[in-house]
């Protein structure tokens, strides 16, 4: 299996408070054709980890450690060099399909921007590629002339996906791409992402807080808690045989559709003692 991305000892701190570890010593590897889910609660550092891969961290934050994309260190790259990777070899989808599209440009134009910038496509070739992409994500071709407000949330997220896969990236980062969507739409989008991943043999890094989504889409799972990775494993290992007390506690909070499970909130005090003992 080809390794696409290696993160080693990534630590993120605010510049003003270097002792506050927002992300603490995180290491992970992403391989082609595999979906890795990062699961965690808000504030666990899952989004920061994803943003740092794209070099999109806020200027208030600083990152230490190594991020290697296809074997090349990308943390030291300047903006221009990063620009050629971002959007081309690494695609990203964000949570809010409402705010991540420009409301005054047609969706066709916005998909085209990526293609022109990275592949230099123009004219008929550009139009053809836009149509092909829209078809791939299941949107009628004539929708290229629509503005974002004329599309539903699910369609907008499909447009975002079309943009992110436009240059056939090796790595697709999806940060809670279905959180804002209805369940039936969510199921369609998950299916689409999974099919695209397989067809294009991409590595996919999928950030979510929803264990149901993990069960549907993940190959490997990384559980984060307060900036640290507490457990990694295959989907089967994490979901059915979790080892770390936090993973167990988090799973016990998830309501099941059968209603058999007794919900149990996390007892953080207990967790701390347990962690110290372990």
């Amino acid at each position: 299996m080809t390794e696409i991305l290696n993160i080693t000892n990534l630590t993120i701190t605010p510049k003003s408070a270097p002792n506050r570890l927002l992300v603490n010593n995180v290491s992970l590897t992403l391989s082609a054709g595999k979906t890795t889910c990062i699961v965690g609660e808000s504030g666990s550092g899952k989004s920061l980890t994803a943003l740092s891969i794209m070099g999109l961290l806020s200027s208030q934050l600083q990152a230490q450690g190594s991020i290697k994309f296809q074997g090349n260190e990308i943390t030291k790259l300047d903006n221009k060099a990063l620009q050629s990777i971002r959007g081309a070899k690494i695609g990203m989808i964000f949570q809010e399909p409402m705010t991540s599209l420009n409301p005054v440009l047609t969706v066709g134009y916005q998909i085209g921007e990526t293609l022109t910038a990275h592949l230099g496509l123009k004219g008929a070739a550009l139009k053809e590629k836009i149509s092909a992409l829209l078809t791939q994500v299941g949107i009628p071709v004539e929708r290229a002339n629509s503005y974002p407000d004329e599309l539903s949330g699910g369609q907008r997220q499909r447009v975002m996906i079309a943009m992110s896969i436009a240059c056939e990236p090796l790595l697709l980062i999806a940060d809670e791409p279905t959180t804002a969507l209805d369940v039936t739409v969510q199921a369609q989008i998950l299916q689409l992402l999974d099919a695209l991943k397989t067809r294009m043999n991409m590595a996919m890094l999928f950030i979510t807080h929803d264990f149901g989504v993990v069960a549907d889409i993940a190959d490997d799972v990384i559980v984060m808690f307060r900036g640290e990775i507490v457990e990694t494993g295959t989907k089967q290992q994490i979901l059915s045989k979790p080892k770390h007390p936090y993973t167990k506690a988090l799973l016990a909070c998830v309501p099941d559709a059968e209603g058999k499970k007794q919900l149990k909130p996390i007892d953080y005090a207990w967790l701390k003692e347990d962690k110290a003992a372990a």
């Binding site: 369940v183 039936t184 199921a187 929803d210 069960a215 989907k235």
Partner: peptide, 22 residues
């Protein structure tokens, strides 16, 4: 939940993430 009568309810229930895997 156990025996949804309407197609729409069936669709909703089968769209619950993680149901297939569970």
């Amino acid at each position: 939940y156990n025996a949804p009568q309407q197609t729409y309810t069936q669709q909703l229930l089968s769209a619950i993430p993680g149901r297939k895997a569970a």
